[in-house]
């Protein structure tokens, strides 16, 4: 198998630097080539300035090249890195086209500075999440990138088909020789009965998934709380971890789509999260 390429959507701002550090850790852990892509947004003629303004695209490109140079210099030595400057009307589309041209296996993107810890999704990340045919890694704001990956978490949902993502997680964990943890995150209300049955159902599903896909080698954890925040916080996330989560069933074709549960998990998660598009059971 050829060396996989990981694309980092880079823009020179703080969140891109965070994404780059996380992307570099992922690429080193999983033996990938890192492709840093910066898309310079070109003007739409319909946004023409009044009165006629100079075209400053070349100055923006000039600046962008410097950002890319800085980006390259910040990557730990030894990791194969390439930088790419592209131009597109839409930054997200430009990133996706670069990913397609490079046959990338993962797109890494930083997330917006929301309030408090965890992350909210910015416009570029949102567009990527709604159109990417390859997995998208969202890196929380201010993520420290503590080093090489140690553990892969995989979120197992309770809806039919939500367990397929485990296959990807198994593959990633096997390649990098990492621990695999299957997690189920439950929001449960006060009601004792409902809580028990939900918990039991999740436990059954996750054990079945562990058995089916990993031959029982994966560790299983159930996080629960009255809110998703509490459920997420009830798990002691390994800082050098990564959470894989399946795309929503609403995703058109084999593209990513951030489901509502995933979006809420995202808001409180301290580690990067990879949204994996539906594979329809095929092996990639």
């Amino acid at each position: 198998m050829s060396v996989p390429h990981y694309v980092v959507a880079y823009g020179g701002d703080e969140r891109s630097k965070v994404a780059l550090r996380a992307g570099a850790d992922l690429a080193r852990s999983l033996g990938a080539v890192l492709d840093i892509v910066l898309v310079v947004r070109s003007d739409t003629p319909f946004g023409a300035a009044y009165p006629p303004a100079p075209d400053v695209e070349s100055l923006v490109e000039h600046q962008a090249e410097r950002w890319l140079d800085e980006a390259r210099a910040s990557v730990p030595p030894g990791l194969p890195v390439r930088t790419h400057l592209r131009r597109h009307r839409s930054v997200a589309q430009g990133i996706l086209e670069a990913a397609a041209d490079l046959d990338a296996r993962l797109v890494v993107v930083g997330t917006a500075s929301g309030v408090g810890p965890g992350f909210t999704v910015g416009p570029v990340a949102t567009q990527l999440l709604h159109a990417s045919p390859v997995p998208v890694a969202l890196v929380p704001r201010g993520h420290e990138s503590p080093g090489l990956l140690e553990r892969v978490y995989c979120a197992v949902g309770t809806r039919p088909g939500a367990q397929l993502v485990v296959r990807e997680a198994v593959e990633a964990a096997r390649r990098a020789e990492l621990d695999l943890h299957l997690v189920s995150l439950l929001e449960v209300d006060e009601h004792q009965g409902a809580r028990e049955s939900a918990r039991r159902r999740a436990a059954e599903l996750i054990s079945a998934a562990a058995e089916d896909f990993t031959g029982g080698r994966a560790t299983v954890e159930i996080g629960q709380g009255r809110t998703m925040k509490q459920a997420v916080e009830s798990i002691a996330w390994e800082p050098r971890g990564l959470l894989l989560i399946g795309s929503s069933r609403l995703a058109p074709g084999r593209r990513t789509f951030l489901g509502t549960t995933a979006a809420r998990i995202l808001r409180h998660l301290p580690i990067p999260m990879v949204v994996v598009p539906h594979t329809d059971g095929e092996q990639r």
Partner: peptide
């Protein structure tokens, strides 16, 4: 459609040329 910027491809391992397809 993405336009690789002519002459400004800052390819790390030169010769990959992957940025000129467009």
């Amino acid at each position: 459609m993405t336009t690789p910027v002519a002459g400004t491809t800052t390819s790390g391992d030169r010769g990959s040329g992957s940025d000129n397809d467009g």
